[in-house]
């Protein structure tokens, strides 16, 4: 092996090491209890038990959050209040507004590292536990028409 090939081999090994480590971190972090990812709801991937279910509907152009409890059905628009250290499952979909069809939206809570598409005809679930109290922003990050940028609001976490 001449010195040229040696340098190149060293470089490739170095890059491979970095990438394998990165890929390892990628897999490792998904094991953490704080990790969550949007998953299409199917009979084989049911909603986890012992979590509070919040039904989220994207509509042109607002977010509707619905919960059910003993007093009935409660819906809020562009915002929702959660309890700290309590586990929630968001069931997210898209419903039609004035137009014939519903469109794709994407619910995003930056400070929680939570994101899931709202897809017409499909339920996506995402499970997470807020661990800080306060007010956090929510946004739609998939373009959905004229007032897309106003599909945003605040999420409040109380003790």
């Amino acid at each position: 092996m001449n010195s040229k090939a040696k340098i190149e081999a060293l470089w490739i090994i170095g890059v491979l090491v970095v990438l394998v480590v990165a890929a390892g971190i990628n897999i490792y972090t998904t094991e953490s209890p704080n990790f969550t990812i949007a998953t299409k709801e199917t009979p084989s991937s049911p909603i986890p038990g012992n979590t509070t279910v919040v039904y989220v509907e994207g509509v042109q152009w607002s977010w509707l959050f619905t919960t059910y409890n003993s007093t009935g059905k409660h819906t809020t628009t562009d915002g929702v209040t959660l309890t700290v250290n309590h586990t929630y499952t968001f069931v997210i979909t898209s419903i039609k507004g004035s137009h014939q069809f519903a469109v794709i939206h994407d619910l995003y809570i930056p400070q929680f590292d939570v994101q899931a598409y709202a897809v017409p005809g499909q339920n996506n679930t995402i499970t997470f536990t807020p661990i800080h109290t306060g007010t956090f922003i929510i946004e739609c990050v998939e373009y959905c028409g004229y007032l897309h940028y106003e599909m945003r609001g605040y999420l409040t976490v109380v003790a």
């Binding site: 990628n26 897999i27 990812i37 299409k40 499909q122």
Partner: peptide
């Protein structure tokens, strides 16, 4: 990745994305 593909496909596509960097 956040469209509902789920964890398994997510890991497949992200791992492949590391390979494309080589």
């Amino acid at each position: 990745l956040n469209s509902g593909l789920g964890l398994a496909w997510g890991l497949f596509f992200t791992t492949a994305s590391f390979a494309v960097t080589i």
